[in-house]
């Protein structure tokens, strides 16, 4: 009799243990999830930063051809933009100011856009830098671009120094270049 009772009690204890372990695991998991940064707001550093810049070479929106390597030896701001992008319009005057300051060059990549609206967009702000057409967004994929405007500061030796998500200001770019110079780039 005592053996059977012991067995039955052991069974009950097993279920209790299972319940307790499950509850603890669920609690631990809930705490873990609750203290994580929400995936929608997490900022992961770009994997291409501190690496050689992926190549950009192809036809420009005006009909010529251009390559990023043409700017080797100078600080380059690779700017992904589109004529349909509202934030790009806010950023454009700042890029013009940065370009005119002579601190560095600007190379635009026209992301998933048509040539004619892109030419009109650049002309509206007096932007006279080359804009490589990227109608299928394949250059953007190589650079890990999610949505324009996104910019990358490339060192004179062709290393990506930083990724800038959203509109950037000329002042900020000037400081970034100065700090990069101070660090030997």
């Amino acid at each position: 009799m005592s053996t059977s009772i012991a067995k039955r009690r052991a069974g009950g204890a097993g279920i209790k243990w299972f319940g307790a372990v499950t509850a603890i695991l669920l609690l631990a998991f809930s705490v873990f999830v609750a203290t994580r940064t929400p995936a929608s707001t997490a900022v992961e550093p770009s994997p291409i930063v501190q690496h050689s810049a992926p190549s950009i070479s192809g036809p420009t929106v005006t009909g010529g051809r251009f390559s990023l390597s043409n700017y080797r030896g100078e600080f380059v701001l690779v700017n992904f933009f589109a004529s349909w992008c509202a934030s790009c319009a806010i950023e454009e005057p700042q890029l013009v100011r940065f370009s005119k300051s002579g601190i560095g060059k600007v190379l635009a990549v026209d992301f998933q856009d048509e040539d004619r609206p892109a030419i009109a967009f650049l002309g509206r702000y007096g932007a006279n830098w080359p804009a490589v057409a990227d109608p299928n967004g394949q250059i953007a994929v190589k650079w890990g671009v999610s949505a324009p405007p996104e910019s990358f500061l490339v060192s004179p030796s062709g290393v990506v120094l930083t990724k800038i998500v959203g509109p950037v200001t000329a002042k900020e770019l000037a400081i970034l270049v100065q700090v990069a110079k101070a660090n030997g780039y």
């Binding site: 940064t37 929400p38 707001t41 997490a42 930063v49 930083t162 970034l176 700090v179 660090n183 780039y185």
Partner: peptide, 26 residues
């Protein structure tokens, strides 16, 4: 918002000590 700020700050400090001043500053 707090988590994002904290994460960016931690990353920036990490960049500072690893010599990536430009990324840190951004």
């Amino acid at each position: 918002s707090r988590a994002l700020e904290s994460r960016e700050l931690t990353q920036a400090i990490g960049y500072t000590y690893s010599g990536q001043d430009v990324s840190a500053l951004r």
